[in-house]
Amino acid sequence: MIIELSSTATSRDADTLAASLTARYGRVHPVLLGANWLLVLPGAGGAAAAEVAGLPGVDRVVPTAGPFHLAERALRPAGSVVSVSGVDIGGPGFTVVAGPCAVETEEQLARSASAVASAGAALLRGGAYKPRTSPYAFQGLGEEGLRLLARQRERGGLGVVTEATQPAEVQLVAEYADMVQIGTRNMQNFALLKEVGRCGRPVLLKRGMAATVEEWLCAAEYVLSEGNPDVVLCERGIRAYGQETRFTLDLSIIPVVKKLTHLPVIVDPSHSTGSPFLVAPMTVAAAAAGADGVIVDVHADPASARCDGAQAILPQDFERLMEELAPVVEAGGRRLTRAHRGLQPLVA
């Protein structure tokens, strides 16, 4: 159960009510989610709702089943929209995030950023910190990569989405990025999830490669419970049996997750399939299935890429994809989200 307090409630009001309810209903979790104080009562049943609804300062009571509560659709039945530097993810738009898997050089990033911006991408992706399967693989440029991303935002106006891989990196990444990504390998790194919940930036949470939907949404709950309302889920494929694709892109999960949660859901057709020729059809299929967007790997010279070049598509193929995608999005009663140009850099 969730208790939403009135808009005038203070932290003292929330703490006082939480203390009075703890003895009766077990542990109560006060959360300042956006501008509203919420009290999460994991163990309270339907009978408690009527009693609690009449208490002073209570605006409404939302019955929830758990084990995730703040992520449940019941809290925001119309769905949530997450704004990233003026670009909305969720709602009537379909948002395309694109760029190289990893930042390698200024020239490489500039070529990809220019290409995706001119083709109509709304946000720029690029990894400065890269968690890799092998310790000998390219691990990213670190802070220098973040600087290069910020420079591209200043020049081209696309907001930046980039990954943090450990709690100690989060504040630095948040200084440069417009959205902090949590990768599949870190979906259940709970210390990291708590830290991004406090970082003041929207969060892109990728599904773990072997995670159930419940585990995925509970991971989102960690971020929400720290007071960050701006979480976007990303389906990026689960473990496959065969070798025809890198992972199995579970498009059937999109309507399931959108029924369960108010959080926006996007799809990663690049990391899931591992094949450039599958990116376009899976992007179109994701739009048809009701996804709120996609995140796509684009590299001007995939053969020379230091990270996941085998799955990246060329700029001209991305341009063609955007042309093919538009009528599918429009047929579903939506529109392609456009970038908010003229952004100022977060870091000089």
Rank of each mutant, 00 (worst) to 15 (best):
E106S: 12
E106Y: 07
E106M: 10
E107Y: 08
E107W: 05
E107L: 11
Q108D: 03
Q108Y: 03
L109C: 06
L109I: 06
A110M: 11
A110G: 08
A110R: 15
A110K: 12
R111C: 11
R111P: 00
A113S: 07
A113Q: 13
A115V: 05
V116A: 09
V116Q: 07
V116N: 08
V116I: 12
V116L: 12
A117M: 13
S118K: 12
G120E: 10
L123E: 13
L123T: 08
L123F: 15
L124D: 09
L124W: 09
L124F: 06
R125T: 10
R125G: 10
R125M: 09
G126K: 08
G127W: 11
G127H: 09
A128G: 14
Y129R: 03
Y129P: 01
Y129K: 04
Y129W: 14
K130R: 13
K130N: 09
R132A: 09
T133W: 12
S134L: 03
P135F: 14
P135T: 03
Y136Q: 02
F138V: 05
Q139V: 07
Q139A: 15
G140N: 10
G140K: 10
G140A: 08
L141M: 12
L141Q: 04
G142C: 03
E143Q: 08
E143K: 13
E143H: 00
E144P: 04
E144N: 12
G145C: 04
G145A: 07
G145H: 02
L146I: 02
L148H: 01
L149N: 02
R151I: 09
R153S: 14
R153M: 14
E154G: 05
E154Y: 01
E154R: 14
R155K: 15
R155M: 00
G156H: 13
G156A: 05
G157I: 04
L158E: 02
G159D: 12
V160C: 09
V160M: 09
V160N: 06
V160E: 08
V160S: 10
V161Y: 06
V161G: 05
T162F: 01
T162Q: 03
T162W: 02
E163T: 07
E163I: 06
E163G: 07
E163W: 07
A164L: 04
A164W: 01
T165G: 14
T165M: 15
T165A: 12
T165C: 13
T165H: 13
Q166S: 11
P167D: 01
A168F: 00
A168S: 12
A168W: 01
E169L: 00
V170W: 06
Q171V: 03
Q171K: 09
Q171C: 03
Q171I: 00
Q171E: 15
L172W: 00
L172S: 15
L172A: 13
L172G: 13
V173R: 00
V173H: 02
V173S: 02
A174H: 08
A174K: 05
A174D: 10
A174F: 12
E175M: 06
E175D: 15
E175A: 15
E175I: 01
E175V: 00
Y176G: 02
Y176E: 05
